[in-house]
């Protein structure tokens, strides 16, 4: 199962994925022009773009666990596109708010960002996502260096949490949906935490002259992999 697609196959997969990622946009545009978004189309567009931002964030965060579980290392080559689509839908979400909902009323927007916690958090998530989108290219990786680039991009974990909080604080009473998204995020982040812990234990064990009889792990002064 570790078969890697050829360059041509990967290009085809990427093209297909690109088209697939545009389907939510296409469907919503079609509904908009067909007047099929219900009684409050602006709200419908706001919710749809927000939902898809969150979904793409989670899909992007699922790439690493999926790669580890399946051994399909080439999946990593799709991650940048998925992450950029998360930013793309976040931009649509923000534009919908800025334009259709608030109609460029900067006063009202500034008031919202400062006074309404769920908007504060959502706006912060969007602001933090922007540098990640800007540095999602090979030039930026070279320029920053792999390690610095990676620590910058780890902020996506926090952005994921902000996105869940944004949704959670928005709903009036029924927290079922934000809870489901939250559990998925917790699983994806929890897997990373668990794997790091396993890696730490493995390294400690490897550095140990003999296995300890009790098998108890004592955090030694071992340099963790950053």
């Amino acid at each position: 199962m570790t078969k890697t697609p050829t360059a041509a196959q990967l290009a085809a997969i990427k093209a297909a994925l690109f088209a697939l990622c545009l389907v939510p946009l296409a469907l919503n545009l079609q509904r908009w022009f067909a007047d099929a978004l219900g009684a409050n189309p602006i709200e419908a567009i706001t919710h749809a773009s927000g939902d898809w931002t969150l979904r793409f964030l989670l899909i992007t965060l699922a790439v690493t666990p999926l790669r580890k579980l399946t051994g399909l290392n080439w999946l990593l080559r799709l991650r940048r596109m998925l992450g950029l689509f998360a930013f793309f839908y976040a931009s649509l979400h923000f534009t919908t708010y800025f334009w259709l909902d608030q109609f460029f009323d900067l006063n009202s927007i500034a008031h919202d960002i400062m006074k309404r916690p769920f908007i504060t958090v959502g706006f912060a998530a969007f602001v933090l996502l922007t540098p990640l989108a800007v540095t999602s290219n090979n030039y930026a990786i070279r320029r920053l260096g792999g390690r610095r680039w990676q620590s910058l991009h780890r902020s996506v974990y926090g952005i994921g949490i902000l996105a869940i909080v944004h949704y959670w604080w928005l709903v009036k009473a029924d927290i079922l949906e934000p809870m489901i998204y939250g559990l998925i995020l917790a699983t994806l982040l929890g897997m990373r935490g668990w794997w790091r812990e396993l890696e730490r234990r493995r390294q400690i064990a490897a550095n140990m002259p003999r296995p300890m009889p009790g098998g108890k792990v004592i955090p030694l002064v071992v340099k963790s992999p950053q």
């Binding site: 709200e43 009202s108 919202d112 006074k115 309404r116 916690p117």
Partner: peptide, 8 residues
């Protein structure tokens, strides 16, 4: 959690 100054 939101303004009541305007409505749609």
């Amino acid at each position: 959690r939101w303004s009541q100054a305007t409505e749609r």
